[in-house]
Design a protein around this nucleic acid. Structure first.
Lengths: 121, 121
DNA sequence: TATTCATATGAACATGTACTCACTTGTTTG
DNA sequence: CAAACAAGTGAGTACATGTTCATATGAATA
């Protein structure tokens, strides 16, 4: 039936219907696209980038991280929660302190690749 | 002199002063951290992820992209501008149409690595 | 030339988000 | 037990950002 999908745009005038069909077939699953955006979004913040990089240099407690970054431990704690929820970091409790480490080899690689991009331009 | 930097937090009670010093020495340059956050932030949006993935499958004009995504060409155009400014994509004009392609091998790799992460979890 | 169309863009609006502040929790230590 | 402290959290706020809408621009076509 070719029931019109939600394409009020360029439905009749679009140039490459064949190409569009082909690309549409190869498109990412919506959940995957969402997941990608999520992980990249988490890396897309200056504070979180610095936290992750600091942790890539070694295990640190919240207090240490905030000292390294020069921000409040509250702000750091909020960001750590996001990273922890996304399983990018993991925590270890020791007395009053909670120590964080990277929990994802992918992230380390993404980080390295991102650095490549930034440094080579 | 050890002039106190802007550390109102944990200045006295922080556990691992040695570790903090060490990590602080290895920290990223601020511009680099900013650049990293910028590139990742650009990838951290569902619409842009889908645009980039569509372009990874082949050259497309604005109209085609909006058809594939099912969004307005205006919204797409706005996002394309961001990606173009960041040199992640490049454009080629042909008559009334403007065709876009990926302009960065790094991005292709980042994308693949991000996919790994999302799919393997 | 007038019209149609693809693309771009600015303003307005709505939503998301990162920080601060106040407070709580749980642990150590005096 | 009480005080001190590290860490977590909810509310509020300021700012960033993605979309829509209206419009502009520039090219093809009637």
């Amino acid at each position: 039936m070719n029931k019109p999908t939600n394409l009020d745009v360029c439905e009749k005038h679009c140039l490459h219907l064949d190409r569009v069909e082909q690309v549409r077939g190869g498109m990412l699953d919506d959940r995957v696209a969402e997941g990608l955006a999520e992980i990249f979004g988490l890396l897309g913040d200056r504070t979180r980038v610095r936290i992750l990089h600091a942790l890539s240099l070694g295990e640190l407690c919240v207090c240490d991280i905030s000292a390294v970054l020069g921000t409040t431990s509250s702000a750091v704690s909020h960001q750590l929660r996001l990273l922890r929820t996304a399983k990018l970091i993991k925590s270890r409790k020791e007395g009053k302190n909670v120590f964080y480490t990277l929990d994802d080899e992918h992230v380390r690689q993404l980080f390295a690749q991102g650095l490549d991009h930034v440094l080579e331009r």
